[in-house]
C-alpha cells in the first residue's frame, strides 16, 4: 500500500495497518496500540490488527460505522478491557501508565449527587486534597458556565448542561488522556456545536491528548488533528487522515472551507467503501 501526500489540501493518507506519524512526531506518545486483536467469546471478532500511537496534546478522532469497535478501543485504552492479542500501553508524564478519564454519550453523572459533588468525584479520584476542592470546583463551574448550578441535581439539568458537568468532572480528574465516547451524540445539533466550541476552547488551553469517538464525520473534522477511519466488523483501521485546518478553529467557519469538504468526502467514501 502506498502513502500519498496530498499537498493541496495538506492531507496525509496512509495505509491503516502501518503506524503513521502524528502531526508532531516530536511529542511523546501517551498511548500506543500495537497489533491489537479483540474478540469476545473467542469467536466474534471485534477488532483486527489495530495499530496507532497517540501523541501528547493530540486530538485524535475515530470514526466508522456503528459496531466497528470504536468504543472497544476506548475501553482498551482505559484498561476496562484487555486485548485478546497485542499490546495496549499508556504513558503518563513520569513514564508509568497514564491517567485516563472517560466521557460517555450518556452523562454517567451520579443522579443522587448534586453538581458540586459530581465534579468532586473527579478531584477525589485524582487524590486532590479536600481543602482545595471548593476553589477548584468553583473554577471549573465558571469555566463551563455553570456557576449558578453547583447545588442542582442532574435531573434538573438539560442534556447539554449534564454533559458540561461530565466534562467538568473529567477536567477535575485532570487525566493525561481524555477518552470521549460520542459525548455529544445524544444532543441536538445546536447544543452539539456549542459544546464543540467549549471543548475546543478548553482543549486549546489544556492541550490534553484526546481520543474522540464519533460517527459524525463533520464533527470529527472540525475538532481533530487526526482522524482514524474504521471499517465495519471486524473493525480494522481503514485509513488515517491528518486535518491541517488552522487552529484555533471556528467550528462553523471551517465547514465552509473546500478542504473540509474534500476531507469529508474522502472519509465518507471510505466508510461506505467506495473509491
Amino acid at each position: 500500500m502506498k502513502i500519498a501526500i496530498d499537498m493541496d489540501s495538506g492531507l496525509l493518507t496512509g495505509d491503516g495497518s502501518t503506524i503513521v506519524a502524528a502531526a508532531n512526531p516530536a511529542e511523546r506518545a501517551t498511548a500506543e496500540l500495537s497489533r491489537v486483536h479483540m474478540s469476545f467469546d473467542g469467536r466474534m471478532e471485534i477488532l483486527q490488527d489495530i495499530n496507532f500511537v497517540l501523541r501528547e496534546g493530540e486530538f485524535l478522532s475515530i470514526v466508522g460505522p456503528s459496531g466497528c469497535g470504536k468504543s472497544t478501543i476506548l475501553r482498551l485504552i482505559s484498561n476496562l478491557l484487555a486485548p485478546t492479542r497485542g499490546d495496549v500501553k499508556t504513558f503518563g508524564p513520569d513514564g508509568s501508565a497514564a491517567h485516563v478519564g472517560f466521557m460517555f454519550q450518556r452523562d454517567a453523572l451520579l443522579p443522587w449527587a448534586d453538581v458540586n459533588t459530581n465534579i468532586a468525584v473527579g478531584l477525589e479520584c485524582a487524590g486532590v486534597p479536600k481543602e482545595k476542592h471548593a476553589a477548584r470546583i468553583a473554577e471549573l463551574l465558571t469555566l463551563l458556565g455553570l456557576s449558578e448550578f453547583g447545588g442542582y441535581y442532574p435531573r434538573a439539568l438539560s442534556g447539554g448542561m449534564r454533559q458540561r458537568v461530565a466534562l467538568g468532572r473529567l477536567l477535575a480528574y485532570d487525566p493525561d488522556v481524555m477518552l470521549m465516547d460520542e459525548p455529544f451524540g445524544a444532543l441536538d445539533a445546536q447544543t452539539k456545536i456549542l459544546l464543540g466550541y467549549e471543548l475546543m476552547r478548553i482543549w486549546t488551553t489544556h492541550r490534553k491528548s484526546v481520543v474522540f469517538v464519533t460517527h459524525d464525520i463533520e464533527e470529527a473534522i472540525g475538532l481533530s488533528d487526526r482522524i482514524i477511519v474504521m471499517s465495519a466488523r471486524p473493525g480494522r483501521i481503514k485509513s488515517e487522515y491528518h486535518v491541517n485546518l488552522p487552529r484555533p478553529r471556528d467550528l462553523r467557519g471551517v465547514r465552509k472551507m473546500p478542504e473540509f469538504h474534500q476531507l469529508s468526502e474522502k472519509i465518507w467514501n471510505d466508510i461506505v467503501d467506495r473509491v
Binding site: 491517567h99 472517560f102 460517555f104 454517567a108 451520579l110 468525584v121 473527579g122 479520584c125 480528574y173
Partner: peptide, 14 residues
Amino acid sequence: VDRDLVDMLKSMRA
C-alpha cells in the same frame, strides 16, 4: 446498577 457509572469510576482508578 448503571454500568457507565461503574466504568467511569473504574477508569479513574477508584
